[in-house]
Design a binder for these strands. Sequence first.
DNA 1: AATTAAACGAGACGGTACGTCTCGTCTTATT
DNA 2: AATAAGACGAGACGTACCGTCTCGTTTAATT
Lengths: 192, 192, 192, 192
Amino acid sequence: MSVMALPRSGPVRSEAARLAILEAAAALFAEGGYDHLTIEGVARRAGVGKQTIYRWWSSKGDIIAEAILEGHLLDTRRHLPDTGDARADLAAWLSDLFTLRASPDGEGLLRSFVAAAAGSAETGRRLRAAILAAPLMERLSQALGGATGPRLEAAAEALLGAVILRALSREDFDADDMGTLVDVIAGVPPRA
Amino acid sequence: MSVMALPRSGPVRSEAARLAILEAAAALFAEGGYDHLTIEGVARRAGVGKQTIYRWWSSKGDIIAEAILEGHLLDTRRHLPDTGDARADLAAWLSDLFTLRASPDGEGLLRSFVAAAAGSAETGRRLRAAILAAPLMERLSQALGGATGPRLEAAAEALLGAVILRALSREDFDADDMGTLVDVIAGVPPRA
Amino acid sequence: MSVMALPRSGPVRSEAARLAILEAAAALFAEGGYDHLTIEGVARRAGVGKQTIYRWWSSKGDIIAEAILEGHLLDTRRHLPDTGDARADLAAWLSDLFTLRASPDGEGLLRSFVAAAAGSAETGRRLRAAILAAPLMERLSQALGGATGPRLEAAAEALLGAVILRALSREDFDADDMGTLVDVIAGVPPRA
Amino acid sequence: MSVMALPRSGPVRSEAARLAILEAAAALFAEGGYDHLTIEGVARRAGVGKQTIYRWWSSKGDIIAEAILEGHLLDTRRHLPDTGDARADLAAWLSDLFTLRASPDGEGLLRSFVAAAAGSAETGRRLRAAILAAPLMERLSQALGGATGPRLEAAAEALLGAVILRALSREDFDADDMGTLVDVIAGVPPRA
DNA sequence: AATTAAACGAGACGGTACGTCTCGTCTTATT
DNA sequence: AATAAGACGAGACGTACCGTCTCGTTTAATT
């Protein structure tokens, strides 16, 4: 048995408005972070009525979640280097993620993403999926000596979680620190 | 050489007001989470003028940071079990932290703390320090076979970070998962 | 030379829709008064698209004007008593008009009509014509000792206007007051 | 027994804000009429927060009522001519009232007042009192040969009501018509 | 019968205004 | 001088309607 969509006449959702909203939200997020993002601001920037936003999204978190999913906010294919040294590659990539800023003088983008995730379940899930994407998982699996399943997942979460925690506590974090982190999680014994 | 306070007349800061504010903030935080916490609400609940808050704190994040520091919000001596099995103890403690809720039907308290930390640097630092306190570090050191220094710190951050990340993405997390996480970070090989 | 309608195919105006709109407007007017009447509400109640309203009327005032004209709103044949005493009959009728309410607990209907008239020229004219109809004018003419023309018109306007003014200032108005009013306008000397 | 105000500290109502609001409301009323008057517009024009308006008034009708009372909207000492002929003076004054316009191309001010009165009980009462003021009543009493009490009141209401009714039905009204109206109400027999 | 075109129900759109809430600052009287 | 109280300008919140503009369907008159 198939679920039939109820036939409905009338105008169809405007793709132009949808895109304008997502792009405006992404731009404002990048400029001022999640806290300073307002629905009114998005509507103004997108040249759209507020009701058009409320018709399709229920909160600013929802909008950001969709913007992440469609790649307006985060380049999910961000370059993961491949030097043959999986641990070094991961450390570099995480360092990069940690220092990611929207604008040269902007707040840390990662922290703003965390704020968004704290406010919206969907954003949390999307963000996690966007970052813990296939290339990262593969490289991490190599670093762990071929781990898969729950252990690989746990390691990935530990890695990303540690970076998030440091972003939240505003600690500086250099490439060496990141290397130590990867080593610990990969179970590499202390270097001499 | 001693630092002399400038002599000055007039009433000094009211300790009663200070405590009333911290307690009101903690209560409201527990009831509605960080997002619904407002300065006006705190002033109302504490029976205090708004200016008295603004005179001594600069944001709601600041208030929460101080409330954490003084233990109004988080019992920093929360029971860390001691069964002799360091890994099991850690897993139990983290599980506890993860499922921490303000009220029976409340939002996850951890998620709300993350929102607070995302909005206030000081809160982030205080929160981290409050959770990664001495008892936890000691037990983790045991689990790691006596690690100290940067490696111990990295492990602690990975552990707490992973829990935070799961809280943010609203995944459920049972005691087994937590055990796997501790194992991976402790470098314990897969169990048969 | 005659004006020819351009030949055109297609459906003609739907009488069912027209009536549904007028009746919905009348019902909503009676329930909530002119101010709370909205085009969207009329469309919803009538089961009609908004455009069908805008196609044929240009404002809610227009709709009300047509509803009055067709008797959906005001029974223009409202009973004007005939006791032989023209002044008493007029006083009774005006009293009736003044206290007219849509629903038992409703606002004064007269006041709502005035609001409608203030907002729409056509409604003003229609309303005036609907109230100052032939039966009233005849009885008033008798009360004035056979006046006609401008003096009769002036008297009629004075009578209705006074009632409206009292409705606007929310004064109570009993049958005696109404009698005095008719007497003054009819030029009857003060009663002993 | 006296009603004591509760002793209260804190700032007192700003007279500057109060006046700015009344003046802005009066200006906007004169420019666009009651229907186009908005609270947001008043706040903008007065340079005042919306909450400052809502704190002290509950509707735009309320504001207009106060503006009338304080003479921001209607010069209650409008010149009532004194030529010795009371009926002619009244006719002239009413004609003046009827043709009163806010701006050269504005809507009739009287009609807008009626809309305001229809929407707000207090405005209705204030407006009535402002127009049916002592000078008018005295002159009317003369025209009626010394009438007082209910009969004078009824005559006054009939007079003003008739003018309002004509304003509502957008009929033109010249000085002759106005004379006839005064004559009918004054009980003067038809002129030859 | 097939074509054509307008009226229809539905409702999305860019807007304006609503009335409420909170922000951070400022003012007052009290302690 | 610090406090409780709270008015102030500012502006975001989410909702209700505005009047216009599609949509896809239905209904007549014309081919």
